[in-house]
């Protein structure tokens, strides 16, 4: 229970105006940290941003990951190479790719603006990606999708290998087209994995951290702060571990409820389907 003890300890800390060093008094303040968090505008801005990030990344990541997994599951030239190429973003360190993406989304002469203006001619003005809230969240989400697609792909590939070929053949005999086969054979066949991926992606989205810290550090004016960057700032920059812990438990309860709903809605159907 290497996480259990620290967890309980953090829970305890969240009821204190906790002093970092044990030699100084930590004052018990009950639920004050929780009440403060619920009324903290910045915390809720962070929650909204995390929700936006979730909506921008999770459906896209899962869909793209599943799409390419389906394509790469079947035999094709250079399949092994492609699988590796899709996996490379997953294995590159978050710190390095976050700084890399910050560089790509640079306003003047950044690679993304070059691609949009000079290559696709979608716009003539450079977009100040990281200088404003919503475009910055899009940039951070782009990194999130790019980094996680390969992860989904790998899990789905493993899951697809367990779907029995006979089922596809049977469906094909029944005259089902590719989309129908996908919907009626593939999806039920990998439902458990799909749930697993969804739950973990949602947890991951609420826990988005290094990319935001390094690309915008929550700015400008705190508008792109997410729960973890704000907690980190409170705990490690401002040494308010009590407050940071309280927020992390509010976030955890939130995630727990959402995960529970996911199990409820996606998990139940598993029994119905099989």
């Amino acid at each position: 229970m290497t996480t259990g003890y620290p967890l309980l300890r953090s829970l305890q800390i969240s009821f204190y105006n906790w002093s970092v060093v044990p030699t100084q008094v930590s004052k018990f303040i009950g639920l004050d940290n929780y009440i403060r968090a619920l009324g903290d505008e910045q915390f809720w801005t962070g929650m909204v941003n995390a929700a936006v990030y979730l909506l921008l990344t999770v459906p896209a990541t899962v869909a793209i990951g599943l799409f390419f997994a389906t394509l790469l599951h079947a035999r094709m030239p250079a399949r092994a190479l492609f699988r590796v190429l899709f996996y490379i973003p997953v294995v590159t360190s978050w710190v390095v790719v976050s700084l890399l993406f910050k560089y790509l989304f640079t306003t003047n002469d950044g690679a993304v603006n070059w691609f949009l203006t000079d290559f696709l001619h979608l716009t003539s003005e450079s977009i100040p990606w990281l200088e404003q809230r919503w475009t910055a969240l899009i940039a951070i989400s782009a990194l999130g999708v790019w980094k996680s697609v390969g992860w989904c792909l790998v899990v789905f590939l493993a899951a697809l290998s367990g779907v029995r070929e006979e089922l596809y053949e049977a469906a094909a005999l029944d005259g089902a087209n590719a989309w129908q086969r996908f919907l009626h054979v593939t999806v039920p066949g990998i439902r458990g994995t799909l749930l697993f991926v969804l739950v973990l992606q949602v947890i991951g989205a609420f826990n988005v951290f290094p990319s935001v810290l390094l690309m915008t550090n929550g700015g400008p004016a705190g508008s792109t702060e997410v729960p973890l960057t704000y907690m980190y700032k409170q705990a490690f920059s401002f040494l308010d571990f009590g407050y940071g812990s309280a927020m992390s438990f509010i976030l955890a309860i939130f995630i727990f409820v959402i995960s529970f709903l996911q199990f409820r809605f996606f998990g139940e159907k598993k029994e119905v389907g099989s």
Binding site: L7, L8, L11, Q12, S14, F15, Y16, S19, V21, P22, T23, Q24, V25, S26, K27, F28, F249, I253, F256
Partner: peptide, 20 residues
Amino acid sequence: PAVALAIAMGLSGCDIGGSA
């Protein structure tokens, strides 16, 4: 969470530290 909460409340309830 409620159980955990109770445990933590039991653990706490008063100021700690300050042995300096």
